[in-house]
């Protein structure tokens, strides 16, 4: 996986709270045995009508949001099941950054492991991000992981917290398993010396 340093792109908004993984990718698409090609099923039940046509009312079907790479959303994004198909679908669709008021734990981890940067910002700041432009899309947003901030079109900086370990992993695009395998001696020692209870 390549490292994540900065990203500049267009941001689309999905102003909803508690978007669960069943909405991000419905269960009928979880049956594949590979990681590729989930983007076309992202937000399936919202994105398409029952006749298979695009739903013209859905936020991500608007002409000006089509090529967005940053998703801005509400509270408790990604709640529900542990399916990693959710970040696979978001990434395959083209999203590289998700900014939300909060994330569900498992989903947050699943994003980081797939090179998607999940950013928590307070509601007020998310609203301020939008104050300059249209309420649904921001044409130019800079996301800088090294310095842990987001910069909007008028140069306003929004600082975000990020765990130092996962930051390093993301910045370098390191393979986590390779890192852990360097701890083989410690793992072995734990297995021999531990008190089982």
């Amino acid at each position: 996986m390549s490292g994540f340093k900065t990203h500049t792109g267009k941001a689309a908004s999905l102003k909803r709270d508690h978007v669960d993984t069943d909405q991000i990718i419905p269960k009928q698409f979880l049956k594949k045995i590979d990681k590729a090609g989930y983007g076309e099923f992202l937000f399936y039940d919202w994105r398409y009508q029952s006749d298979g046509q695009e739903n013209p009312d859905f936020e991500l079907n608007q002409l000006n949001t089509k090529d967005s790479s940053i998703l801005i959303t509400g509270n408790n994004f990604g709640c529900g099941s542990s399916r990693e198909h959710a970040p696979w679908a978001l990434k395959d669709y083209g999203f590289q950054v998700i900014i939300a008021e909060s994330f569900a734990d498992i989903f947050f981890n699943n994003c980081v492991k797939n090179g998607i940067l999940p950013i928590r910002l307070p509601k007020k700041e998310i609203q301020r991000l939008y104050s300059e432009e249209s309420p649904d899309v921001i044409s130019h947003l800079i996301v800088d992981l090294e310095n842990q901030h987001v910069v909007n079109g008028s140069g306003e900086h929004f600082y975000f917290e990020f765990d130092p370990y996962w930051k390093k992993m993301l910045l370098n695009g390191w393979d986590e398993i390779s890192v852990t395998l360097q701890y083989e001696d410690k793992i072995k020692r734990f297995e021999t010396e531990r008190i089982v209870n």
Partner: peptide, 22 residues
């Protein structure tokens, strides 16, 4: 606790997980 598929792979390979204490 529940984990994603990347973590499933990590546990298969190493029998461990990196976790911040909640």
């Amino acid at each position: 606790f529940g984990i994603g598929t990347s973590e499933v792979e990590h546990v298969l390979a190493t029998q461990t997980l990196w976790q911040n204490k909640p």
